[in-house]
């Protein structure tokens, strides 16, 4: 007979394997995005979150039915983790009718309202006030739902961040603010845009519960998110979560990263890749890993096939959806 402790451990291991599977899927998906962009197939302006998958998965797996998120310009991972099929995300990147926003949005404007994704935002900090408002609606209606904003350290320098945190705390709305602290605002390193080291102080200034977590450790992110969500859901006020993470890619796909020493990226890839860290921790057999990888790669490849076979919007449909 397994002890309770052993049963708990095995459940936790199973959950971590699921997290790994999902992080790997996001990774393979985004590598495919980079590849197809370089092949000239994807229009526009793309940002991948390679290296930050643990934040997206750890937070989104802690959400409950009815919770909503707002994402950023680096939105593929959040969107997939919130439940949108990779086919629909890729179709959007190809500008197809089958995409999440039917070709009206693109990579920086992924919405999936049915699954609680209120939209990715190409304005840094642009989604935060809306999350306060969504949380206010939940509170006014007495619904046990939480609204979560993702944003980066760069966004903590814009007015919407400060106004939103102040308002959220003042009104004690059920919101969680997740700062993906990758220490770069586009190309600008933290030392050039952040006058403080400890980012939790940003929210403490508003009297908000504030916590920091290792954003490369998906289990730690998951546990922190659960705690934060519970506090918000129980009506004990919003929470600020600083997830210290690393961006293993450039700001945008094609970014030569002249602002960052090559060794830094190589070193981080070796030591701080959240997928490799979790794989090592789970001590996965090679064949299990390879099977997981094959599956993730297949889904990513299928999404490209799906997207390429998608329908081009009719040009004149550009005039639809301007007004309800």
């Amino acid at each position: 007979m397994a002890t309770l402790e052993e049963k708990g451990q095995s459940a936790s291991t199973e959950r971590l394997k699921e997290f790994l599977r999902e992080m790997l899927l996001i990774r393979r998906f985004e590598e495919k995005v980079e590849e197809r962009f370089r092949a000239g197939e994807l229009p526009g302006f793309l940002h991948v979150a390679i290296g930050q998958e643990a934040v997206a998965v750890g937070v989104c797996r802690a959400l409950e039915e009815g919770d909503v998120i707002a994402s950023t310009h680096r939105a593929h991972g959040h969107t997939i983790a919130k439940g949108t099929h990779p086919n629909e995300v890729m179709a959007e990147l190809y500008g197809k009718v089958e995409g999440t926003s039917h070709g009206y949005g693109g990579s920086m404007h992924l919405y999936d309202v049915e699954r609680g994704n209120l939209g990715a935002n190409a304005v840094v900090g642009g989604g935060l006030p809306g999350i306060v408002g969504a949380a206010l609606a939940f509170k006014l209606r007495g619904e046990p739902r939480v609204a979560v904003a993702f944003f980066g350290d760069g966004a903590t320098n814009i007015g919407t961040f400060h106004e939103s945190l102040n308002l959220a705390q003042l009104w004690m709305v059920p919101a969680v603010f997740v700062c993906e602290n990758n220490r770069y605002a586009e190309s600008t390193p933290a030392k050039q845009h952040l006058p403080i080291e400890d980012m939790t102080k940003r929210a403490e200034a508003y009297g908000m519960t504030s916590m920091a977590v290792d954003g490369q450790d998906v289990e730690a992110v998951y546990e922190a998110a659960r705690k934060a969500l519970k506090q918000a859901r129980d009506g004990r006020g919003p929470v600020f979560v600083v997830a210290d993470c690393v961006r293993l890619s450039g700001h945008y796909v094609g970014d030569p990263q002249v602002y960052r020493p090559k060794e830094e990226i190589l070193e981080l890839r070796k030591s701080r890749d959240p997928i490799e860290l979790l794989r090592a921790r789970l001590e996965l057999a090679d064949e299990d890993w390879e099977e997981m990888d094959r599956e993730a790669t297949r889904i990513a490849e299928d999404s490209v096939e799906f997207a390429k076979k998608g329908t081009d919007p009719r040009p004149e449909d550009a005039l639809k959806n301007v007004y309800a």
């Binding site: 999350i131 919407t160 308002l167």
Partner: peptide
Amino acid sequence: DRVRNTPISEMAIVGAGIGAAVSGM
């Protein structure tokens, strides 16, 4: 609750209005 005084935060109050509107209010 329904006649809400706000801080002097035009970005946040218009934005909170947007979020509440999107959420059914």
